[in-house]
Every structure is written in C-alpha cells, then in structure tokens.
Amino acid sequence: MGINTEPQKQPAVKLEHVTKKFGSKTVIDDLSFEIYGGEVFGFLGPNGAGKTTTIRMIVGLMRMTKGNIFIQGHSVKSEFKQAMRQVGAIVENPEMYKFLTGYQNLVHYARMIPGISKERIMEVVKLVDLEDRIHEKVKKYSLGMRQRLGVAQALLHHPSVLILDEPTNGLDPQGIHDLRNYLHELSRKEGVAVVVSSHLLSEMQLMCDRIGIIKKGKLIGVETVSDFMGEGEGKVRFTVDDGQSAAQIVKQKLSLDAASIESDAIELAIEHEKIPVVVDTLVVSQVKIYGVVSVTQSLEDRFLEVTGGKSVG
C-alpha cells in the first residue's frame, strides 16, 4: 500500500467523459478524472457546481447521459453489483431509519451484503464511539451521532472506496479530529480511496492529498494540495508611504512588475532571497518602509480565485 499519492496500476475510481443532462441543460460536462487507492481526494466546488450530482452518478443513484464510471475496474453501468460491493458512502445527510435503533439500522445494511458478522458490526460501532447509545432509537440521536452512525454503515463491509459527502457536518472539533485521523489511517494503511466533499475548506486542506475543483459542471483542475497552495505563494507585501512611487522605483531599478499597487502598499511576486534586495533599493530611493510581510494564500482564497469569487458551498 502506497504511502502517498503515487498512482497505482488501476485507479480505484475512474470517470470517463461523464456527462449529465437534465432535459437540454448540461449539468455535468465531460468530466474525467481518476482517484487512486491510498489517497484522500477532496471534491470542491461552489453550490450547484455538480458535486452531489457527480457523487450520485458514482454510486449509481443517477444515470449518466454519456460516459462511464469504473470502480476498481467495474463499470457502474454494466456491473453495478460488483462496483457497489467496493463502495461505502454517505450521500448528503446520513438519513437513517429513525424508528429503528442505531444497531437495527446497521443490521439492516449488514443484511444487504453477505459476510458481515455481528462482531464486525460491534467493531464498527466501537470505532465511531457509539457503544453506549447504539441500542437507542435514532430519533434520539444528535446530528453528530447520526453522522457517526452514517460513517459506521459506510465502513461495515470493508469498502475499498469510501465516499463521504460533507462528513464533518455536525461533528464537534474532537470528532472532526478523530475522523480525519481515521480517514488518513484508512487510506495510508488499508489503501482505501477516500473521496470527501466539504465546504469547510480549511478542513479539506488538512484532510486531503489531492483536490478536484468543479465549477458549472466542468472540472477546472485536479491538483495536489501542496501544488494548489504553492501557486499562491511567493507574494510579498511591502507597506510603504507611497505605493505608486515605490512601484515605479522597483520597475525602473529592478525591472519587477508589482502584482498589486495600493496607495500605501505594493505586492511583489518574488522569491524569498530577493526581499533584502528590494528593501535596499527602496531605502536607497528614500521610500519609507513600515512593514514587510510574505503573503500566503489560504486554500479558501485560492479556491475563490479559481472559481471566480463565488460563494463557497
């Protein structure tokens, strides 16, 4: 089992030119990407971009208009059962039968896949820390407990692909921390391909190895989190008395174009080592410097930048 995201021979999940139309409206447009065992893949996009539609097509709840999806090499279209045997999932909210107990819910799902023992059910219950309340009716559960029960049902049959839609929804910080560690463990130690969608971008930053960004049904890019962050790095903000003249001086003497010019600041896209040179030049030219800060973009800023500043969902 790989330690990082190096592609293995066969992708755990493979989307091939997946297109979905509702009537004449194209909701998902020619989506192709691959997810490998041993990685946590984040699926990002603003509301209505088609994240949930894509997840629904992966688990067979919706049919694709064109293209195909393979799970461990099995087509969701033509080998639905073999494909689904590999998948554990929560789609949107983990809706369970409220009039049944947590345990009865798990027994219900266990009966649908051969070979799940009572011991395995209890093992999963222990894993999500619901031992004390598992024999209570689900209607008495808090949102966080329902979420954990949802994770439990997704893990029952040792899936090699785990798809979690907004998994941290309703979890407390400790719960989020535990889930994150567990997902890492699953992907690193057992080689499970984990697909996560979340609107908590900072959470994604900590949880995911690679991120796929989808906007208006199109895939904008698939990048590793470090590449994703890296593109935004290297900007340095100089707070000065006169932004305009500072920008001119840097342009004339160092032939650097300012990334942004404000009345009291400029931002330059320069490497770390060049900062003293710029400071020297500005000081010599009698520009007053009040501060030098290197600007790192958060995933969220980067996300807004890529998706065109739309609200995040």
Binding site: F80, M96, M112
Partner: peptide
Amino acid sequence: NTGTVKLLMIRPIS
C-alpha cells in the same frame, strides 16, 4: 421522502 432510499440503493443489490 425521508432520504433513506439513498443509503438503500447504494448496496450491491439491484
């Protein structure tokens, strides 16, 4: 209506 159909239909059962 309750949404439980989603978790029901993603099993290896037609």
